[in-house]
Amino acid sequence: MRRFRPYYDRTIRSSDITDEAIYLSRRQLLGVGAAVGLSSMLPRGANAEQMLRPLKYVNASESGWDKDVDDQLTPYADVTSYNNFYEFGMDKSAPAKYAHQMTIDPWSIEVSGIERGDQTIPLESVLEQMTLEERIYRLRCVEAWSMVIPWVGFPLADLVAWLRPNNKAKYVVFETLHRPKEMRGTRSFSSVIDWPYREALRLDEAMNPLAFIAVGLYGKSLPNQNGAPLRLVVPWKYGFKSIKSIARIGFVESQPATSWQQIAPHEYGFFANVNPSVDHPRWSQRFERRLPSSLFSPNRIPTQLFNGYADQVSGLYKGMDLALNY
């Protein structure tokens, strides 16, 4: 039984309506909790130098993008201290330590393959056009751990529509910022990643209402280690598809080479849809550890096809062999 409300069901139930005062105080509480969590969990450098702004947005229970009943939000401290962001180091705790060295203001995005011709668009111009909303999504890492995160952002479809790709475009490709001076991980001689990090979606995947660009989490702007100032979130795919700190967006005709697929094509496919029946060659994908987990209760749960979003996305892959197109 799915308890997730489909995206098209936007009827507001009485239970969804929150008194504004309660809503605001709840946000405030969250903020306080987050601040306390941050200051106790993170190395001093990271939070002292990051100014996280509170955001205005439509909250998830109002927009109809609420979480599954069973899902509990992963605490803010965990979401912001356990990250794969190899630009700042291989260790999961490295991004929280070093990502504050990345300058995110000013930020602009180089866009190519659109009707207007190549453009460099300041982030503010993008944000002016978008309405922020909250989405509570499961995030399943290819390494078999998962989180539940309340993102704030806008549908990728809105961004694509506003950018107006030229009519030949079949794929959208994203690149992470590559600034070695501020990204110590990219200076490592033993890393096998060919920077900048690159990810891509088929255009119809990008237009799916689930595909999302996040600019915040837990009601505030994204911490750098989570991919500030804007990142992709495609919850039905493994986490590595959800590229962080986007500096380039291109619309292209043929399937682009993406980072992990280039590094190990037999292990990471272009689609990278969450699928419990297609194992990674070196480990099983049938289960995941929902974080936070602990030694005595590992919190190991079965992984769902398309990370539980099959109703919304399986149509994109009709007639495709998912074991071949992993």
Binding site: T74, P75, D78, Y82, K92, R289, P292, S293, S294, L295
Partner: peptide, 15 residues
């Protein structure tokens, strides 16, 4: 560290 739950969100992997 185990007793204090001070091994991050994924202590099993860390251990």
């Amino acid at each position: 560290k185990v007793v204090q739950s001070d091994l991050g969100p994924d202590p099993i992997k860390t251990l």
